[in-house]
């Protein structure tokens, strides 16, 4: 995987998410653009790069949120593992795949944030808000992942195969 492209995408996604979070919301819930970038990486990259890429995305999101450090790194790491396990059985270009992976990723993130809220009740986030956020993420997933899939050549996910030498 071309890591420079990855970091540019992560940087732009996090900047957009931080800038837009308070303006694109419904009942306090916002769609998660960074999560969709994580799904895109996990859907296309080789195993090790995908896991590390998802974890790093979460760690970067942890830098700018009020949640404790490591919460999103953990959530996106788990999402990376989940999406990676589906890599071979899903049609990567289909909008329904994007919707379902966006929803699953949103729910997994919600589960981790919800679990944190159970342990630390003063930071409890209402489950309905987490679910709405997951749903919003799933709704925008085809519009984000579709164009990203067209640009996946920029990330060089598959290493170049060596041509067999002609004798």
């Amino acid at each position: 995987m071309r890591w420079l492209s990855y970091f540019i995408l992560a940087y732009v996604a996090l900047g957009l998410q931080t800038g837009l979070a308070s303006f694109v919301q419904y009942q306090g819930a916002t769609p998660n653009l960074v999560l969709l970038v994580g799904v895109f990486i996990a859907l296309n990259a080789p195993r090790d790069a995908a896991l590390l890429g998802c974890f790093s995305l979460g760690a970067m999101q942890d830098l700018v949120t009020q949640h404790p450090l490591g919460l999103f790194a953990l959530a996106y790491g788990l999402i990376g593992m989940f999406v990676l396990s589906t890599q071979e059985i899903v049609y990567r270009e289909h909008p329904l795949t994007h919707f379902s992976l966006g929803l699953a990723g949103g729910l997994m993130t919600g589960a981790v944030v919800g679990l944190h809220g159970l342990i630390h009740p003063d930071q409890h986030v209402p489950p309905l808000m987490l679910f709405t956020s997951a749903l919003l993420t799933a709704v925008i997933a085809p519009f984000v992942l579709g164009p990203l899939q067209k640009l996946k050549w920029m990330f060089k996910f598959q290493p170049k195969r060596q041509r067999p030498r002609a004798f």
């Binding site: 996090l14 900047g15 957009l16 931080t18 800038g19 830098l63 700018v64 450090l69």
Partner: peptide
Amino acid sequence: GRAQVQGIFEPVSKPTRLVAL
């Protein structure tokens, strides 16, 4: 630790926020 680097997204987030506003 994170306080030292959290402002690195400002070049993207600030113009985005102003446009959204």
